[in-house]
Amino acid sequence: MALCLRPGFPTVLVGTSGSGKSSLLKQIAGWIGEDAFEGTEAGLSAPQRRALTTLVLHDAAILDDTVRGNLFDPEGSDTMMWQALAAVELDERIRSAGGLDAWIRQDMLSLGEAQRLNLARAFLTHTPVVLLDEPTEHLDTAQGQRILARLADHLSNRIVVISTHRPIWLHDSTILEL
């Protein structure tokens, strides 16, 4: 079976725990397996895919650092960081905590807030391939749908693959059940 991934057409992998969604994302990202993937010009090796891909895992690690440091975009502008935080509905929480230079730790955020901060990282990434592993697991359905729609719109010039337990409907998306 061939999987065709194209910019502007998000692919949503739907399946139960253990169905291989996360493993497939890791394989696409070049984290596991040494196989080559066919690209537009030539095959892409695992190291080449690692360089081109951002894999956002569902169990986001929050560093003991500033919000700015946790967004993983050292050259990013404050404007873009605030846009990313607004897109994931975390901007008001961060403003009330002291802004981009406020110090945060893992235990200062709920699971949903940590997950949304992780999605803000995806918003700010510069790689052409963005893989989101269960990005709405700790969010309610409506909030998750809103945030993913904003992310998909912002990343419309990139390849986006999302794994999830429940179907997510995005414009021009392909849903694959595993």
Rank of each mutant, 00 (worst) to 15 (best):
I147E: 02
L111R: 11
T127I: 01
G112E: 03
S156N: 13
L155A: 04
L139F: 03
L155E: 02
Q115A: 12
A149M: 03
R121G: 14
G144H: 00
H126C: 09
T136Y: 07
D153A: 15
V130N: 07
L124V: 04
G144I: 00
H154Q: 13
D140A: 10
L131Q: 11
S156K: 05
H126G: 14
P135R: 04
D140E: 13
M108D: 10
L117V: 09
R116G: 06
L117K: 10
P128E: 07
F123H: 13
P128C: 09
L109A: 14
P128I: 12
R121V: 11
L111C: 14
A120H: 07
L148R: 02
M108C: 12
T125M: 12
L119R: 07
Q143H: 08
N118S: 15
G144F: 00
S110I: 04
Q145F: 00
H126N: 13
A122Y: 12
A114G: 14
L111H: 13
I147P: 10
D140Y: 06
P135I: 10
E134K: 11
E113V: 02
A152S: 14
T136E: 08
S110T: 15
H126I: 06
L132A: 05
A149I: 00
L139G: 02
I147S: 02
S156H: 09
L148Q: 04
L109K: 08
E137D: 12
A120S: 06
H138C: 12
E137N: 11
L119F: 06
L155V: 03
M108I: 05
L151D: 05
L131K: 07
F123Y: 15
L117N: 10
A152H: 01
V130H: 08
L119H: 09
L148N: 03
S156G: 00
L117G: 08
T125L: 03
N118Y: 06
Q143M: 15
V130M: 08
R116H: 03
R116D: 06
S156M: 01
A114Q: 12
D140H: 14
D153S: 15
A152N: 03
Q145N: 04
T127K: 15
H138N: 15
L119Y: 06
E113S: 05
E137T: 10
H154V: 03
Q115L: 09
V129C: 07
R121I: 12
H126Y: 05
A142S: 13
L148W: 01
A149G: 14
A152R: 04
L155G: 02
I147W: 00
Q145G: 01
G112S: 10
A114V: 13
T125P: 11
L117C: 08
T125K: 14
L109G: 09
A122T: 05
I147Q: 04
R116N: 07
L139K: 01
L151W: 04
L131M: 09
T141P: 01
T125N: 15
T136H: 07
L155C: 04
L117M: 14
L131G: 11
S110K: 08
L151S: 04
F123I: 01
L139C: 06
G112P: 09
A142P: 01
Q115M: 09
Q143Y: 01
N118C: 12
P128N: 11
A122M: 08
A122W: 06
S156Q: 12
